[in-house]
Design a binder for these strands. Structure first.
Lengths: 204, 204
DNA sequence: TCGAGTGTCTGACATTTGTCATGCCCGGCG
DNA sequence: CGCCGGGCATGACAAATGTCAGACACTCGA
């Protein structure tokens, strides 16, 4: 095929972004048309250059890769999104797929493999790293109800119950109840351990 | 100068390591003689190839960059160490300098700049990213006493006071006292926030 | 329609945590 | 020597947290 794939590269680590751009440029059928160091910048660049494929880091300042992907989905339906992540957590994978992301891989893949994957998603196919997929499946669905998750999130930064109650417009007893319920469901020792677990599994 | 600098590259993210190797090879006076994806592997590679400069990621499986640097210091005194980090925290910087590391920079630097820094540390000079240095200085020394730090560390994973008391062979009241003291000194809301703060500043 | 099951919400009670006043020991200093 | 000052350690008390039983609304099948 003689078609050229136009790629947007977004990663806050200049070292990686530059190196990656150089390596991908070695592929005849790939051309990096834009680079970005943050979520909002990635969006702006995408609007300006309308790339075929956007390669997004999961962790970026401003808005993370999934949020950017969500916006791109509506603004540029023709642009396929491939997310790369340093230390992937299952929950993000689920969010990412829900946002219409076509590919999700850890940064442990080789540049050669990444180039292949860019072609894969450009062709309209999906690819998810098998290990990350296995993690996501073993983590399963969140056992938390909507309120439980909401309250747990508010408790994330160690705020006292009174503050959580005020922000959620609930009685303190109710907040304690939800926290207790969430802690039990997650099999955690206390609310803080529960927050950690929920974070790891992408349930908050 | 016609001398060639022999470089060891260690990073668990294959994508970055490969890309970096390619970019650094473009420099005439730099040659990547070995790559590693983990702490122990980095040590083994260093022993086998005796590089002039070791470029180590801070976060790696097995042993982190600082631990590797400590070992290298005694085994290969002629090998200078340059640490790169994704999201640098002041405490690590202090540990790194104590371990004899010559350079410490975030991954937001460009490859060009990294090449310069490899030459800098090879020449025996030091370089620390100004922003990271400022963070470390503003963080200052730990105000915690030995016992306070010990108890705070035991409290890190959300264990209840009774368990901490048992593991530290202290009365529960004493444990509460140290935690309270640590929380006050750190200006935190509660023990968990204190753990976070101490972690960020490298005090535990 | 009506009963079972589930989610939401609350207050009362037991447990855990945070704070305070206090005593002990040790090293430095007048 | 005698007397601080600081770190270590403790128990008592107040405040926050975790646990429990139960009320209400809503959905889904029988």
């Amino acid at each position: 095929m003689t078609e050229v794939v136009r790629v947007l590269l977004a990663d806050d680590e200049h070292l990686i972004r530059g190196a990656l751009a150089a390596l991908l440029s070695l592929e005849d059928d790939l051309v990096v048309v834009a680079e970005a160091a943050s979520g909002p910048e990635a969006l702006a660049m995408a609007r300006a250059h309308a790339p075929d494929v956007a390669v997004l880091d999961l962790q970026m300042p401003g808005a993370d890769g999934v949020k950017v992907a969500t916006s791109l989905r509506t603004e540029l339906p023709g642009c396929q999104v491939l997310i790369v992540t340093g230390h992937g957590r299952p929950g993000h994978l689920k969010r990412a797929l829900a946002a219409g992301v076509r590919g999700f891989v850890p940064k442990t893949v080789s540049a050669q493999r990444l180039a292949e994957l860019i072609r894969t998603v450009h062709a309209g196919n999906r690819y998810v790293d098998p290990e990350l997929a296995a993690d996501a499946i073993s983590a399963g669905d969140s056992p938390l109800t909507a309120r439980e998750a909401e309250v747990l999130e508010l408790a994330a930064d160690g705020a006292p119950v009174a503050e959580i109650a005020e922000r959620a417009a609930l009685a303190e007893g109710t907040v304690r109840n939800y926290l207790s319920s969430a802690v039990t469901k997650l099999g955690a020792e206390n609310r803080h351990a529960a927050v950690r677990l929920a974070r790891e599994r992408g349930w908050v």
